[in-house]
Every structure is written in structure tokens, then in C-alpha cells.
């Protein structure tokens, strides 16, 4: 019995370590390159030597330049700001909708839910022109509103919440109603506190969506003051050259920052409603 446990642990460590290599190795080129002078990027690429992985002239100039020349300070702030506001609004709006779908029966529910599902199957690239017209007529073009408001309501997030709420026993709501609680109170005071894990994942989904968002910010804003990271990174690919070291430096930062965020957030997975036994 003990032996088996030790073996199990060993296997899981081994798997984890193999996975770490699979995840990190492809990124190694980007990490190394970001510390090289621009003309050295491809200098030692083939055949492989130790120089392929270790920069010979280590320089931090790419990191410095993206902040001093390309304004990445502002760009990171914008992306964070847009991401966090969207998460806050999105969690509220979409969990409310999911609450309605999960708890109530009402006329037109099936068709409305079907349409909600359809909304996340329509790729943005195809509705870009009509959406641009709508947003432009609302006067949002080139503002934070343009980046935030159109993506707050999100069919996928509603679906995610609904999958979770469907597991909550109806008896909770019925007894709360008997005690005279309003529906808002039930949603806000009972359901939301029970929903920490799903809220974290939903928040992540919304945040990652904004963090990676490219075409919409490109179309909807044009001033430097609203520039977000994916758009900013694509300016490193110029007509006749790609500024590889800066591109990789920026990309490494866009990877590290959310990873740190996750490091802090992941403890909520463990401390969520695990083992409270609410699930039926």
C-alpha cells in the first residue's frame, strides 16, 4: 500500500517534469533572443551549440527600448485596465443571465438560450464591418468604451455559469424564498458566494480574451493612448524587417505577467467550495 503511494507520487512528479519541458522548451528561443542584440538573433540557430541557447552578448536593451521607445508602460496599463473592467462587468452581467436560465422557467427560454449559444460561434472577423458601424454610430470609436462595452456580454461565459448553476439544488432557492428573500438577494447573497471557482475561471476566460484580443482593438482605436499589447506587438513586424528582439521581449512580458497572476489566483481553486458538498 505504502509502496503504491510512493510510486504514484513518483509518476506524477515525473509527468509534471516532462510537461514542464514540453511547455518551456519552445519558449526558450524567445527568451534567449530577447537578450540578444538584434543582428545576433539567427546567428547561432543551426547547427545547435551551447550558443544557440545562451546569448553571448547579453543585453537588456530590447526590454529597455520597448518601454522607452514603444511606450509599453502605457500599453500594459491599458491592457490591464481594459481586461479588469471587462472582467468586473462581464462577471456580473453574464452570471445574472445564467442565473435566469438556470433557475427560472419562462417563455422563450429555449430559443433565447439557443441564440446566446449562437453568439459565440459567429467569428468576429465576419461581423467586423457591421459591428464597426454600430460602435461608430454609438460614438465609441477610439475610446476605452469601444474596447470594453461590446465584449461585456459574452455567450460563452453565460454558458459556463449556467453549467455550474444547473448543479445547485433548487431547494436552496425555495427555502430562501420562504424566508422572504428577494431574488436579487438570493443571487447576490447566496449564489455568488457559492460560485468562487466558476467565477475565477470565468474571469480568466474574459481576461485572456481581452489580453489576446487583436483585430477589434486594431479597428476600434487608433490613438496611442488606447493601444493594447497585441496591436503594439504587431508593429514590430514592419514592412521590410521584423524587430525580433523587441518582439520577443514584449511577448515574454505578456506571458510572464498573467502567469504571475495565475500563481496567486490558483490557490482559490483549492479554497473554493471544494468539499462543502453543495453539489447534488
Amino acid at each position: 500500500m505504502e509502496n503504491k503511494k510512493v510510486m504514484g507520487k513518483l509518476v506524477s512528479y515525473l509527468l509534471n517534469i516532462v510537461l514542464v519541458f514540453i511547455v518551456v522548451l519552445p519558449l526558450l528561443f524567445s527568451i534567449t533572443s530577447s537578450f540578444r542584440p538584434h543582428e545576433d538573433i539567427f546567428k547561432y540557430i543551426s547547427p545547435i551549440t551551447w550558443k544557440t541557447f545562451i546569448p553571448t552578448d547579453i543585453t537588456f536593451s530590447a526590454y529597455k527600448d520597448i518601454f522607452t521607445e514603444s511606450g509599453f508602460g502605457r500599453i500594459f496599463f491599458n491592457t490591464f485596465f481594459v481586461g479588469i473592467v471587462t472582467v468586473a462587468l462581464g462577471l456580473l452581467v453574464n452570471s445574472m443571465a445564467a442565473f435566469a436560465f438556470s433557475v427560472f422557467s419562462f417563455r422563450g427560454k429555449k430559443i433565447v438560450f439557443f441564440i446566446v449559444l449562437l453568439t459565440f460561434m459567429v467569428p468576429f472577423e465576419v461581423i467586423a464591418v457591421p459591428l464597426y458601424k454600430v460602435v461608430s454610430s454609438l460614438g465609441f470609436i477610439d475610446s476605452y468604451s469601444a474596447l470594453i462595452i461590446p465584449v461585456v456580454a459574452n455567450g460563452l461565459v453565460i454558458f459556463l455559469y449556467k453549467q455550474f448553476f444547473d448543479d445547485l439544488p433548487l431547494s436552496i432557492f425555495e427555502s430562501a424564498r420562504m424566508d422572504g428573500a428577494s431574488w436579487w438577494r438570493i443571487y447576490y447573497g447566496i449564489v455568488l458566494p457559492l460560485s468562487k471557482p466558476v467565477t475565477i475561471t470565468a474571469g480568466l476566460l474574459i481576461f485572456v480574451g481581452q489580453w489576446e484580443s487583436f483585430l477589434w482593438p486594431l479597428l476600434a482605436t487608433h490613438s496611442d493612448q488606447y493601444r493594447v499589447i497585441q496591436v503594439a506587438m504587431s508593429t514590430f513586424s514592419q514592412e521590410h524587417a521584423t524587430i525580433w528582439n523587441q518582439l520577443f521581449a514584449a511577448s515574454n512580458l505578456t506571458i510572464v505577467v498573467p502567469a504571475i497572476l495565475l500563481l496567486f489566483l490558483q490557490k482559490y481553486f483549492v479554497n473554493g467550495i471544494a468539499n462543502t458538498g453543495v453539489k447534488e
Binding site: A97, V103, K109, V116, V134, P150, V152, W183
Partner: peptide, 28 residues
């Protein structure tokens, strides 16, 4: 399931308005 005349629509309102304007209308 619980029936209620207006409550579900009120909970749906913000999401449906958002989806209506920024997803459904452009998709149509």
C-alpha cells in the same frame, strides 16, 4: 424550475441588450 413573471427577464436584460447590439444584430 421556478416560474416568475418578470424576474428572469430583468436578470437577462443587461446581457441580452449587449448581445443584441454587439453580436446578434451584426450577425443578422
Amino acid at each position: 424550475m421556478i416560474s416568475s413573471k418578470w424576474t428572469p427577464y430583468l436578470f437577462l436584460l443587461p446581457a441580452i441588450v449587449g448581445l443584441g447590439i454587439f453580436s446578434i444584430y451584426p450577425a443578422f
